[in-house]
Design a protein around this nucleic acid. Structure first.
Lengths: 347, 347
DNA sequence: TTTAGCACTCTAAATATATGAGTGCCAAGC
DNA sequence: GCTTGGCACTCATATATTTAGAGTGCTAAA
């Protein structure tokens, strides 16, 4: 399975993949020879191709067509045949540096970053930011809307703001709300949101005697807005790049993709990444669990907010992608984002 | 120009538009006769059609094809021939009522509403919410990030939260920030954001002597985050409905649409509406200024936040739309949204 | 092991043909 | 003076036919 191909087979596979990435048509032995300085005849190439096909690295759509890579072929290419292509790093670096001084809000920041990555790669850029749950509490602000409606504003240590309306069972007045807010800000500062519910439960028994009402309401606010199901934030950019790809020139192929992107919550799950995975991951074609993306490849890379917490930056495109270029871009940009959170202390 | 057509011409135009809305093909005199109980021969219909074509209400793509409405035809249809179709109002009403008790945040609320309207109409739903500028100040929160970086959180009276990072020219400490926040909250409460800049300028001369530093920094925060160009919020839902429309079955026709939707700020401008316009507005085909939407129709309706301030709820679809159904949906849903802001005092 | 030669395959493009829905116009009829 | 049946004409769409050429696999010789 994991055996290495002969050197010439590797070269030919690499040439086929490169050719197919550049020109979206199956390539034949003769054309391949022309495009590379390979010192053998078409017939030789053909017999090697025959072998590669037998091993399922390449295939051809019909008898008289050229060869193109299979998922397995792409996989081998990505794992073994990808030369470091450092061509465009300066360009990326330049735009990233320019960005550094313009960060205005997390929302705008990620919106810009997803645009950046999509621009560099000419593919769809997706960023998934972790749920509130996994972030740390900075402060809460409670705004009186009516006697049983409160607008709750949560701020995280990393600068994310989340607001939410809570319908209370008991009536409140603005003064009591202020007390509750003070209480929360004292109690929860720096605490991860997921720990708050439990902390609240512990404190409530102690409090109930003296501050019955305060405790009950604070508890309801925590239950309904922190403990309730939270949505991850997702930024998607450059969906129209899909139209440039020759494999997506028919509505029947584009439609499912765009429909999938209409479902943000699902997209968040698909593009999220295990936080323990460091470095770039690629899933190619059938390796993707999501039906809609089985004709695509996804390149993912975590960026880090704290040591234990991360978001994911991804690129989605056709299997026929310039992986070298995309790897460089993803590596750089995700590194930049991690930096913003860690070393630069921008948030 | 604004003259009324003869009754029979109106009937025929109406039949043509209705037929074309239901079946996306030009309709001929014979087919039209079959589909309607019109008591005249095809030849008669043909001569009437001829007349209607001479008056530019209908056209035909080639000699041997049936007729279809022009923009002018649709316009006449929308202005004069639209019967009240009250068929689905209960269904809409039901889903709206169910929604009322689940409002959690402005973001989620509009995300749900745009989904609702897109669902009812089977077209693209767009909601534009006014810029911060036009809303009223509730409170500001200043969070110390580093000695010259502040996270500013603005809350509006209507419950919208906006956060922004400001890079300060002068260094601050958390205590000073707290003073500035207190100052702002006292000074600006209830004031429309667009008035704050001027108010600040007026106060700064009085203050400068005693609170030099506070005033300078407060001024910078106001200038950089309130006075700076603000983005309207936009929610778009149901873009994949476009794929169901027969006039958008080729990538060349879909691509420009989706590319336009990638540019949020532009979309906001296109779908925004003059606040003085009350009631539904329709722009059909060439009536749309935006090049990308000249093959579409847009139905817009303002909803009201205060007497002088409003957002817009719109539906975008092909010219060949079921206007009656869409008018009903837009009317109901925008009415509901206005209600949420005004009478129900949810925010 | 490599290669030239050759018969064979199959798509894609180009061309030809047929179908039929729809039109405009005219002369006859109510 | 409308209305209508009849008829020649038009033109997009669908189907069938042909052609060109890129590419293959196989074989036999180097």
């Amino acid at each position: 399975m994991n055996t290495r191909l002969s050197e010439r087979k590797e070269t030919i596979l690499q040439l086929i993949v490169n050719s197919f990435i550049q020109y979206p048509e199956p390539v034949g032995s003769k054309t391949l020879l022309q495009r590379s300085g390979l010192g053998v005849s078409p017939a030789t190439i053909r017999s090697e191709m025959n072998e590669l096909e037998r091993l399922h690295y390449i295939t051809h759509p019909h008898t008289s067509a050229g060869r193109l890579p299979t998922d397995k072929g792409y996989r081998y290419y990505v794992d073994h045949l990808l030369g470091q292509e450092t061509s465009e790093t300066e360009k990326i670096q330049a735009r990233i540096t320019a960005l550094k001084h313009k960060i205005k809000s997390i929302d705008e920041f990620f919106s810009t970053v997803s645009n950046l990555i999509s621009d560099f790669t000419s593919q769809v850029g997706v960023i998934v930011f972790p749920v509130l749950d996994e972030l740390n509490f900075r402060y809460a602000n409670l705004i009186y809307l009516s006697e049983n409606k409160v607008l709750v504003v949560w701020a995280t240590m990393s600068g994310l703001i989340k607001e939410q309306i809570v319908h209370l069972d008991k009536a409140v007045d603005p003064e009591l709300l202020q007390h509750i807010a003070n209480f929360m800000n004292q109690e929860f500062f720096g605490m991860p949101f997921h720990a708050i519910k439990a902390h609240m439960a512990k404190r409530i028994s102690e409090l109930e005697r003296s501050y019955n009402k305060l405790a009950t309401i604070a508890d309801q606010i925590v239950s309904e807005s922190i403990a309730a199901r939270q949505e991850r934030k997702v930024w998607i950019d450059g969906m129209s790049h899909i139209f440039a790809e020759p494999e997506f020139q028919e509505i029947t192929t584009i439609k499912p993709l765009l429909e999938a992107f209409d479902q943000r919550e699902r997209i968040a799950k698909v593009f999220e990444h295990d936080r323990t995975v460091d470095g770039i991951t690629t899933t190619i074609g059938e390796e993707n669990d999501t039906a809609e993306f089985k004709s695509c490849a996804i390149v993912r890379r975590n960026f880090y907010i704290t040591d234990s917490l991360c978001g994911t930056l991804s690129v989605l495109g056709p299997r026929r992608m310039d992986y070298a270029k995309i790897f460089t871009a993803v590596e750089f940009v995700s590194g930049f984002v991690s930096n913003v959170f860690k070393e630069e202390k921008l948030f």
